Amino acid sequence: MKPLFIVLEGIDGSGKTTQADYLKTYFEGQGQAALVSPEPSSGPIGQLIRQVLAANILPFATAQEFEQQMGYLFAADRYYHLYNAQDGILPARDQQGCHIITPRYYFSSFAYNAHRPEDWQFIERLNQDFPPPDALIYLDLPVEQALQRLGARQQRECYEKEDKLREVSRNYQRLLENYSHPLLCLAANQSPEALHQQIVAFLQQF
């Protein structure tokens, strides 16, 4: 199998991290190098984003201004995540032959930071030069079940609220309707093992 750039998307609590870890273990069991590298990244901008999501520390007067700033931050972190010379994920794929598994990518910026038509255009401008993944896997989980899963977490981020998750779910559906690259949509309320088997079967076509 050629080295792949694989993105996992879905609302909070849909199981992206679990499936990323399963997939890494699978590839390594096949004797193939694999790296799980989520967004926000572990770089300096990604660390700032995590602080903002945990404590909502950006002093903007309106939600719209906050979302625009987050759009800029995510795009800057995404560029770093893809291309930086120390641990950029595309050099790891192309030069080291490593599968890259990324929970969240630019799809999340559309889902979480876009509310109005002009917001979609704004996010599109910020992300238009980033390459699509080799494979996109969307884990579709009802908001009610996501909230049940999130209820077990000790700390909730500012986006992990019911009204926000419902909007995010709608944005994902709108985005994926017109997506023209390799895509697998799965009902995320299946067992982790069943989801993993379907993901592996989908990736074997590559």
Rank of each mutant, 00 (worst) to 15 (best):
Cys185Phe: 00
Gln128Met: 10
Lys2Asn: 14
Ala54Pro: 14
Arg166Glu: 10
Gly151Trp: 05
Leu175Ser: 10
Val52Pro: 00
Phe107Leu: 10
Thr62Trp: 12
Glu39Leu: 11
Leu126Glu: 13
Pro182Glu: 00
Gln51Ser: 13
Arg78Ser: 04
Leu147Ala: 06
Ile45Arg: 08
Arg116Asn: 09
Gln30Asp: 11
Leu184Cys: 06
Ala92Ser: 13
Asp87Phe: 10
Tyr72Val: 14
Gly13Tyr: 02
Ala20Gln: 02
Ala201Trp: 04
Ala63Gly: 08
His196Met: 04
Ser191Asp: 10
Ala201Gln: 15
Arg104Ala: 01
Leu175Arg: 11
Arg116Leu: 10
Leu8Val: 08
Leu48Pro: 01
Phe74Thr: 02
Ala187Met: 01
Leu203Lys: 07
Gln197Pro: 00
Leu147Trp: 02
Phe66Asp: 08
Leu165Cys: 03
Gln155Val: 15
Ala188Phe: 00
Asp129Ala: 15
Phe27Lys: 03
Ala33Thr: 12
Ala63Pro: 09
Phe110Thr: 00
Arg116Cys: 01
Ala111His: 01
Asn189Phe: 04
Asp140Tyr: 03
Lys161Tyr: 06
Gln30Tyr: 09
His115Gly: 06
Arg116His: 08
Val7Phe: 09
Phe206Asp: 12
Ala20Trp: 05
Met70Gly: 01
Gln128Glu: 13
Gln86Ala: 12
Leu203Asp: 03
Leu136Trp: 05
Asn84Gly: 06
Phe130Trp: 05
Phe122Trp: 14
Glu124Val: 02
Arg170Met: 13
Thr102Gln: 15
Pro117Glu: 07
Ile11Glu: 02
Arg78Val: 04
Arg156Glu: 04
Gly71Lys: 02
Gln121Met: 11
Leu90Ala: 08
Gln68Asn: 14
Pro44Arg: 06
His99Arg: 04
His81Asp: 07
Ser14Asp: 01
Val168Met: 02
Tyr79Met: 11
Leu90Ser: 01
Ala92Phe: 10
Glu193Phe: 07
Ala92Asn: 08
Gly97Trp: 04
Ala20His: 01
Tyr159Lys: 10
Leu195Val: 08
Gln68Arg: 15
Ile89Ala: 00
